[in-house]
Design a protein around this nucleic acid. Structure first.
Lengths: 197, 197
DNA sequence: TTTCATTGATTGATCAGTCAATTAAAAATA
DNA sequence: TATTTTTAATTGACTGATCAATCAATGAAA
């Protein structure tokens, strides 16, 4: 039933429609009909492909996560120094493909839903761990491990915080200033370590 | 109908029940019956006092906001130096009364809902502005205004990010380490300004 | 001629919101 | 004070709308 064959094009269309719909509404409180309608099919077909609404939502989150991961790998492959790796993590999180209103709104909605849904929580935890280890991979070359842990935690919190703020269209309007803000924090930390006094 | 008299004790009980229910579920997706039931009354009574569910939710957010504000005023009144004022803002946001699971979960849920509801968005914007001006009131005494703006933005993002992470029970388990993290950022910034280079 | 894609129609559950009826409290009147 | 009248608190039962999920039916590939 979950259609493992090669052209899961309807699945993909439904996932894209889900992202769009969730992003527009800013909440997972969307109906199967809305999603299906946007994908140009009936709600019955959405159920045919995904079974329950829950599974469509999970597939959608997985898709967003895997896109982010792919971007991250690419950026990492092009980074030679530890310093560049850290900047790559930041850059990808605020890249044009990731830091878009629909994606941000979807992220936020999924974060909330994760409090209810163990499977979504598991998904997000995997992402969090990956982010952490990516950050550490750069930071450990630049400062003591304990300090690196703290900085990684701070950067992760900053990213989450900037996402939220962006979702509310409050502060930090554009991606560029978000990057500047995080990089500035990083740079300050490095200075502090080069001349420790 | 909204009962303006002195003992709106039912209203208060319902708001408390709403916080608890929302906090437990981690989402605004709670029924009037659940909330009313926890407050020990019928759902019809909840409607009698608040009209629509929306209004109960708004009153709940307003209540959380005003408690935070009261705490903030108190802490501010006791702070004499600019430096102390900044620390007060941080301390209050991570105080025992604010950094509790129910409150955090409720915050997050309201953030998401704010994307749909203009009135909630307005409420949160007021809070954001107040936080910003509170932070600036301390920071402007310690660094150039432009830099202060950026630091205030970063602190606000850090706070939001740490709240989210706490909601997911991921990183940053306790309030103490959250304060340490933000204070560490601050301290680094100050050092940078005392010996600029 | 079997398997897959697709849908319209339907079902069952869940809820917000309403309402008429009941009890209790408060105010007015005797 | 006792008694009637008014007002407020409170609920169970009901309604209408919304939706996820199902299914039998139809058409199209393979």
């Amino acid at each position: 039933m979950p259609k493992l064959g090669m052209p899961p094009l309807r699945r993909r269309a439904l996932i894209d429609a889900a992202i769009l719909t969730i992003g527009e509404r800013g909440s997972l409180d969307v109906t199967m009909s809305e999603i299906a309608g946007r994908a140009g099919v009936s709600s019955a077909l959405a159920h045919h492909y995904f079974g329950a609404k829950d599974e469509l939502l999970q597939a959608t989150m997985r898709h967003i996560l895997s896109e982010l991961n792919a971007d991250m790998r690419k950026a990492f492959a092009a980074s030679r120094t530890p310093r560049a790796r850290v900047s790559a993590v930041i850059a990808v999180n605020f890249s044009e493909t990731q830091f878009r209103p629909e994606i941000i709104a979807a992220w936020l909605a999924f974060y909330v839903e994760a409090q209810k849904s163990p499977s979504l929580r598991r998904l997000l935890r995997v992402y969090a761990r990956r982010l952490h280890s990516n950050l550490m991979s750069g930071l450990t070359g630049l400062m003591p491990r304990l300090e690196a842990e703290r900085v990684a935690e701070a950067i992760a919190a900053l990213i989450d915080g900037l996402y939220i703020r962006r979702a509310l269209k409050d502060g930090t309007p554009n991606a560029a200033s978000a990057v500047v803000l995080v990089e500035d924090y990083l740079e300050t930390k490095f200075l502090q370590h080069k001349k420790p006094a």
